[in-house]
């Protein structure tokens, strides 16, 4: 049985049918990305998987149990950092640590928060408030906060969407390192509109068709060795192919090309060779 399973999930807001018939499974320790155009229902799908909103239809299970609320073993990273502006970077992280490890001592809370801030390279700036930090540094704090609770599952909502290209590249590598450096396997589900980002980080990528009633394409596996450098995207044959196919699907899903037929994703998935 897979660690996380979404079975025939559907969600509507009033008469607007956002998702329908979404099936998705994540194995423990797997990094899966969902790419889709904006307003395609990506965030709804992620929030439903995380238990932040309840679907109207279908079931979601984590570790065999039905998901009814946000799990104690999960972390969530938002696109807009979502740090509390009246707390320092350190206090933001410690708040999460305190809420998770309620039986720890004060000193343990403090050490855990400092350890993770140092891991993301913010050891010197941890007393600063979010408004004194750059966008990249803020997202680093958010990443430290998410990992400091030692989650089994990580939900990422376009985590680098608000950052410039250079900062994004650095942070992608750091996220990848942190996922692999954790004591136990971290299962991650990320949504993004950036195909390159998905290829760099994921084991599998799925595309979300355009809404209303958005549904998922079959998974496209990314069998590239890690760590993956960003220039890999330009040279590696498989990376190029994955990207082209996903990009094609996404552009077919955009409004401008609405009249074009949708590409057959089943066929695309088969076309990509799966390396052993």
């Amino acid at each position: 049985m897979s660690f996380i399973e979404l079975h025939d999930v559907g969600k509507s807001y009033g008469v607007r049918n956002v998702l329908s018939g979404v099936n998705l499974t994540l194995e423990e320790g797997e990094f899966v990305s969902i790419v889709g155009a904006s307003a395609s229902g990506k965030t709804t799908l992620l929030k439903a998987a995380a238990g932040l909103i309840l679907p109207d239809k279908g079931t979601i299970t984590m570790g065999g149990e039905k998901v009814t609320d946000f799990s104690r073993e999960a972390s969530f990273i938002f696109q807009n950092y979502s740090l509390l502006p009246w707390l320092s970077a350190y206090e933001n992280v410690r708040l999460a640590v305190e809420a998770t490890f309620t039986d720890w001592s004060k000193k343990q809370h403090q050490e855990q928060a400092e350890k993770y801030l140092q891991m993301v390279g913010l050891g010197a700036a941890m007393r600063k408030r979010p408004n004194q930090l750059s966008g990249g540094m803020r997202q680093r704090v958010a990443i430290a906060r998410a990992f400091a609770t030692e989650p089994r599952v990580m939900f990422l909502d376009e985590p680098f969407g608000a950052l410039d290209a250079l900062t994004r590249g650095t942070l992608q590598q750091e996220l990848s390192t942190l996922c692999r450096a954790a004591g136990r396997p971290v299962t991650a589900l990320m949504i993004t509109n950036n195909v390159d980002e998905a290829i760099l980080l994921s084991d599998r990528i799925l595309a979300l068709s355009r809404g209303p009633g958005a549904t998922l394409s079959p998974a496209v596996p990314v069998n590239l060795s890690r760590p993956r450098a960003s220039d890999l995207l330009l040279h590696d044959e498989q990376a190029v192919r994955v990207r082209n196919r996903l990009a094609e699907f996404l552009s077919a899903g955009s409004d401008r090309n609405r009249s074009k037929p949708r590409p057959d994703l089943q066929a695309i998935a088969k076309e990509i060779p799966v390396e052993a």
């Binding site: 995380a50 807009n80 979502s82 509390l84 809420a99």
Partner: peptide
């Protein structure tokens, strides 16, 4: 809504939610 989401995903206790999110 961002701050309320934070309170939710950090699983803050009602008291912490009040003192760390609502009040400030």
């Amino acid at each position: 809504q961002d701050y309320l989401n934070v309170a939710r995903v950090l699983r803050l206790s009602p008291w912490k939610q009040f003192t760390k999110v609502w009040l400030p």
